[in-house]
């Protein structure tokens, strides 16, 4: 496990993501958040772990944690095919742009998110969006659930194997009531 940016040149200057050393740390932060959202990108159907697609792990996690899901690109269709309805869907750029707007009241119109989770976007796109949030959404905390270290997040898992990734997601899911 390494806390170096997955893509070598994706270097942060003075503000670098804290490492999530075990999934319970991420769970604690999610439970502490009042208005979390989970942004899921197009790699959700491209990444396979233990014979299942990433999207299947994410559905389990979202059902257990009750964190509203925002599907980017065309991923909403993939969620619907699996009988799961995301809270919203829009392009990755649009959700990033809304998150830097302090007046945006979230998908339900009830308040700005205080925690944004990201998973499954192309690495460099996710890195850029996390950079935008680091710079322009100072009150927002960000966590990436990918198995690749993202220096621009507030919290990130270190670079890990697919097995570790699957394990982390399963442990996280199990720590919520709905995941028991």
């Amino acid at each position: 496990m390494s806390c170096e940016p997955w893509q070598c040149a994706e270097i942060a200057a003075t503000k670098k993501a804290n490492a999530i050393t075990k999934p319970e740390v991420a769970v604690a932060m999610i439970k502490r958040a009042a208005r979390p959202i989970l942004v899921v990108g197009s790699n959700a159907t491209e990444r396979w772990m233990e014979g299942r697609q990433l999207i299947d792990y994410i559905i389990d996690f979202a059902k257990a944690s009750k964190v509203p899901v925002v599907a980017t690109a065309h991923m909403v269709g993939e969620f619907l095919k699996r009988g799961f309805e995301p809270a919203g869907f829009m392009s990755a750029m649009d959700i990033g742009n809304r998150l830097v707007d302090p007046t945006w009241q979230g998908l339900d119109g009830k308040g700005h998110p205080d925690l944004a989770l990201f998973v499954g976007l192309p690495y460099y796109m996710e890195a850029l969006i996390l950079s935008g949030l680091k710079h322009f959404a100072p009150d927002l905390k960000t966590i990436t659930l990918d198995n690749l270290y993202h220096p621009h997040a507030t919290w990130s898992y270190p670079n890990g194997t697919l097995e570790e990734w699957a394990s982390n997601l399963k442990v996280m899911t199990s720590k919520f009531e709905g995941g028991q």
Partner: peptide
């Protein structure tokens, strides 16, 4: 409106 995603912090 511009949505900035800085490629470098420096």
């Amino acid at each position: 409106k511009p949505f900035y995603m800085p490629d470098c912090d420096l």
